[in-house]
Deep mutational scan, measured.
Amino acid sequence: VIAMPSVRKYAREKGVDIRLVQGTGKNGRVLKEDIDAFLAGGA
């Protein structure tokens, strides 16, 4: 999974398994917005 360390930390704090999140950034990078969208109700 491609993600910046700050995004990985954010996901950990929110209790999200970053491997389950679909990245929308360049080359499938997971963004902070992707974590929020995942929490809001889905992949």
Rank of each mutant, 00 (worst) to 15 (best):
G15H: 08
K14F: 07
G28K: 07
A3I: 09
A43P: 14
K26R: 12
F38A: 07
F38L: 07
L39K: 06
L20D: 09
K14Y: 07
E33G: 13
L39Y: 06
R12I: 15
T24V: 03
D34M: 01
A3M: 05
K26P: 14
A3E: 05
D17F: 04
G42M: 15
D17S: 06
M4Y: 15
A11Q: 01
P5S: 14
Y10W: 04
K14D: 01
A43G: 14
V30G: 00
S6N: 12
L31P: 00
A40H: 11
I18W: 07
K14A: 08
N27E: 09
M4I: 12
G25I: 02
G23E: 02
I2V: 12
Q22T: 14
D36G: 03
G23T: 03
A3C: 08
Q22N: 12
K9D: 15
A11L: 01
E33T: 13
G23H: 03
A40V: 12
R12H: 15
V21E: 00
M4E: 15
R29P: 02
G15N: 11
T24K: 06
V1R: 05
R19M: 10
A37K: 14
K26E: 12
D34C: 00
V30H: 02
L20V: 10
K32W: 08
G25N: 02
V1T: 10
A37G: 07
P5H: 12
K26V: 12
L31G: 05
E13F: 10
G23I: 02
R19W: 10
V30W: 02
G15M: 08
K26D: 10
Q22V: 14
V1S: 08
L39S: 06
V21C: 06
G15A: 07
G15V: 04
R29Y: 08
V1D: 07
I2T: 10
I35Y: 00
A3W: 03
V7E: 06
A43N: 14
G42E: 14
D36S: 04
K26H: 12
V1G: 08
K26I: 11
V7Y: 02
G25S: 04
G42Q: 15
F38Q: 05
V7K: 01
I18R: 01
A43V: 13
R8L: 15
V7N: 03
P5A: 15
D17L: 06
P5L: 11
M4V: 12
A37I: 09
L31R: 10
K26M: 11
K26L: 12
L20S: 09
G41W: 11
R12T: 14
R19H: 10
G41F: 13
E13M: 14
K9P: 01
A40W: 10
V21A: 03
R12D: 13
K26W: 10
G42A: 14
R8H: 15
G28V: 02
G41E: 13
M4N: 15
R29A: 14
D17I: 05
A3D: 05
D36Q: 05
K32V: 09
A40I: 12
